[in-house]
Structure formats: C-alpha cells, structure tokens
Amino acid sequence: MAIIRYPNWLWPGYSSALDDFEKARRHMDRLFSAFTGSGAAPASSGVFPPLIVTEEGDTVIVEAEIPGIGAQDLDISVIGRTLTLSGQRKPDETSDVNFHRRERKWGSFRKALTLPEDVNPDAIKAECRDGVLKIVLPKAESAKPRKIAIANE
C-alpha cells in the first residue's frame, strides 16, 4: 500500500499522525517476528514459487522450491531483463481412494522477476534437483565491472 505523505504545511497534524502509524506498524512487525522466529518467510511477493536470488561474482542465481514439479512441467524464459517462470503442478493420479489429509497444493503458476543486471541469454543454465530449481544467469559483458587503467602522461 502506498502511503502518500502530504507536506506538513497543508495539514500540520496530519503528517505526524501518519508517522505515528508508521512507527506503530514497524513495532508490530518486530513483535510478530519475535513470535514467528527466524524461519518466518521474509518479504514475499505472494506469487508461487517463492524465490531466492543471489549474486555470485559474474552470475546471478535464482533458486525456487518447486516440489513435485518435473522439468517437463516447467517453462523458463528470459526476455530482456525479465525472467518468467511458468508451469503447473498436477495432482497425484489416484482413483478410488479416501483422503485423510490433503495439504499439498496443485495448480498452475506464472511468475515474472526483473533481474538486477543484463544477462547473457545464451549462457543461461537451469537444473532441477530434489524439487529445487536453480537457474544460473551469467551477466552480460556490458554489466560486468570494468577496470579502467589510468595512463601516465
């Protein structure tokens, strides 16, 4: 939610009320994180699958937990700086059974992520192991840091 701050001179009391709300919100967040512990999900976009994006030298690594989704049910594409993941998780084929518990979810998904740097689309590698997808995206030459030599006169 975007909170628009009005300048103080318009409504002198208004902006400080907003500040108080903001302070209260941060305080509540801290309180809740104390209960839920370190394992609580960090800021989530709410779109499946949850991702971890890391930067290792000249590569960007995107990881996702997608249990039960094989490579054949997954589609990865990169257009410019946008990485799109889509696919579906199928329900187990069962016939004539009674369910005692059904907590695992199924359905289709589509998620887009804006990459922090330009990547080389020809060198992208993806692997799926034990239900974890790992996409390795090497940075484009233009995005790599460059050392500039200073010429002595």
Partner: peptide, 25 residues
C-alpha cells in the same frame, strides 16, 4: 529452521499412502 512438511495421506483398499513435500532433501 525446522519446518513441517505439507502432506497428503490417502487410503485405498490395500494400503495407506503418504506424500510429503520436502524440497531440497
């Protein structure tokens, strides 16, 4: 952290099947 895996448990005539999501294991 230690998490509780989501499970499906279903019963057929001859057996009980348990499926648990444990990505990365």
């Amino acid at each position: 952290p230690v998490f509780i895996p989501a499970v499906d448990i279903y019963e057929s005539e001859n057996s009980l099947t348990l499926l648990a999501d444990m990505p990365g294991v």
